[in-house]
Design a protein around this nucleic acid. Structure first.
Lengths: 376, 376
DNA sequence: AGACTCCCCGGAAACGTTTACAAGTCGGGA
DNA sequence: TCCCGACTTGTAAACGTTTCCGGGGAGTCT
């Protein structure tokens, strides 16, 4: 009777055919039972038994092909080492997992080519959707996204007329929070270490910084502004350069990595933080609570943005005809020891807007509050 | 003529059939041309043109089903936020990408169930292979691995008779390096903050610590040993407890996260590092170079181990009949300011075995030397 | 008793690709 | 002129799953 070899798959592993044959039913019945839909009591028993005996596990690829969905969602970020993306990734992963899918992470290095490549490759349908957090946005990004057959949600600022699902924060307002805080603390010569100006977050922070100074009637002193990339080493070196030519009494950094670098430069130059220099970072990542003194930081809600982006993506996957949506997450400021002289340098005062982050409480493994990014 | 709807796929996207029909050839010819094998000049031209016109992109799922490979490789680690895994992930990603595959990252939280679940789910063939770095190894792990139809390579210590591809380091020897260094620097009361003893790395470090002390004729004082998990907060709290009941002149930490937590506790208690307490971490992650003072740390070669594990995996995918292999990566010690009193606290002395890590040189984005883990 | 409903089952088609196989064309050499 | 090889092409079968559809049996209602 074994005319064709319908039984096991090429490499000898059991397939639906194997199970069906062993149970003495058709593959249709076997499939139905295995999916828990239909089947008489006797059939169910026989199929279950046969499946258990041969150790049947359904082939996910074949299932995907038939179901036209893979159960995978991609996340594309510039730098997997930046804790802000770790926070975002955790939030996205949680949402994605709750829908029974898995997360596929791409590190793009922030390179345009790498990102548009990724977008184009979406057309091969290997994932059901993608969340992307680019630090530079070009027309080729946008073109690729609109053309893409699989849904894409962008985390970060986008042109207003782009018909793309998008969750953003107002990093200009975030910068203003920091500047307001520093000015209220009596600081007047505020330095600023930014990331590249040709990135979306870099440009927004630059504009925000100038506007915030202006709103306090403080003239902009270009010697107090430094630009590097969004990394630790750049922050350390830029802070050193900045202090070599000017004497700020406060320093705002475009993200926490830069701020930690700057802190290192300040401390090794013998300056006291916050007494000599008040220091504020951005993104409010885990890192900000690890330094000594702990780092004040502007939260841009990266965990929230990640979570929201993932939710938008799942909604769009479920209903592709939704109109493009745009969501906002408000920034907030976590005040800690690095910017409050006289404040407790031991554990940092309770942050202004979010729950306290005292050293004895939550482990950083699953922080409830976000670490946010360089992503807007 | 359009009897069946062979043209576009369900959702309207072009398939091989679309291209073939438009070019006026069979799907076989179309497929051949698109894969660059065979075809007359005229056929090639027509098919290429048709494909370009309709914007054809082959469906990766269908291709995977037919080819019996997905082009995906999984990585399972406990904690995506631990920089040691970031380093490992980067190294693996590089190898995997060079073989034209993509990396799928799973965060298991170090939970046995989650990990064995993952291993069992391998049977559905969604990935071509997996690198796993568990911190606890149980028989159910090993069973699942031997039974798995897709190759698995384990990073970390394994029972000697386990027939599983495996890359490990000697973390006992690593601990010894640190203890030797501290003793040579004149420290006698060496504290130790470890991770859970029921984990493989925790147990190895504990054994290594006791053995190293014995080799120097130093009696073990249990009050100088603390146990928590491998996180920042645990390190901070454990260090505080330890110093509340004993007065060590040096502190060894089971990984860098713990060490950074301990550093925070020490500094906020007003102790000087390294003058009052010499501090050494393990894993030599990016983090170790960010603190002030910079952290001496035992490198367990996590980048190397990741790279090697990925290579082993690719080899086994290519040839499943290989015998099980076992590779070793030697530990080394990076000496920095946190353990060398009188040494330059500014940038740390050049490490003993690896190239200098001066603050002005390499950005941490793509570190050549590894950050290693809690993984052995 | 006949008709109608409900449920279960198996055959076969579909998802979109690659590829084995056979048939056909063309040219060159005997 | 005929044969044989090289090359191209199309048909059809896989890969492993889900699902539509029609047939048949059992039970119920009229």
């Amino acid at each position: 009777m074994g005319r064709k070899r319908l039984q096991p798959s090429a490499d000898g592993r059991p397939t639906v055919h194997t199970v069906a044959a062993r149970a003495g039913v058709s593959i249709a019945s076997a499939s139905r039972v295995l999916n828990g839909v239909g089947g008489s009591a006797e059939t169910i028993r026989r199929v279950r038994e046969a499946a258990a005996e041969v150790g049947y596990v359904p082939n996910a690829i074949a299932r995907s092909l038939q179901a036209q969905r893979t159960g995978l969602v991609a996340l594309a970020v510039a730098d997997i080492g930046n804790p802000v993306y770790v926070a975002m990734m955790r939030a996205i992963e949680a949402v994605v997992a709750s829908s029974g899918r898995q997360l596929l992470v791409h590190a793009t290095g922030g390179e345009i080519d790498s990102e548009t490549d990724l977008l184009r490759r979406l057309a091969n349908r290997y994932v059901d959707g993608m969340v992307m957090s680019p630090i530079r946005i070009t027309d080729s990004h946008l073109d690729a996204i609109v053309v893409s057959p699989v849904p894409v949600v962008v985390v970060g600022q986008l042109p207003d007329d782009a018909p793309v699902d998008n969750v953003r924060t107002d990093s200009r307002a975030g910068v203003a929070l920091a500047v307001d805080h520093l000015v209220a603390a009596g600081r007047q010569r505020i330095g600023f270490v930014n990331g590249p100006l040709d990135t979306v977050p870099g440009a927004a922070r630059d504009a925000g910084f100038r506007a915030a100074l202006a709103s306090h009637g403080i003239p902009v002193d270009e010697r107090l502004i430094e630009v590097g990339d969004f990394q630790y080493a750049a922050g350390r070196d830029a802070a050193a350069r900045l202090f070599a030519r000017a004497e700020p009494d406060a320093l705002l950094c475009a993200n926490d990595l830069i701020a930690v670098g700057a802190l290192h430069a300040l401390l090794s130059a013998g300056r006291r933080v916050p007494e000599d220099v008040a220091l504020v970072g951005m993104d409010d990542t885990e890192l900000a609570q690890m330094t000594f003194p702990q780092l004040s930081s502007v939260s841009l809600g990266s965990a929230d943005r990640g979570r929201r982006a993932a939710e938008l993506l799942l909604e769009r996957i479920a209903d592709p005809d939704l109109p493009p949506r745009r969501e906002h997450v408000a920034p907030s400021l976590a005040v800690r020891a690095s910017s409050t002289v006289g404040g407790p340098t031991r554990s940092g005062p309770p942050p202004t807007r979010r729950p306290a982050t005292g050293p004895a409480s939550r482990p950083p493994a699953a922080p409830a509050d976000g670490a946010v990014g360089v992503t807007s």
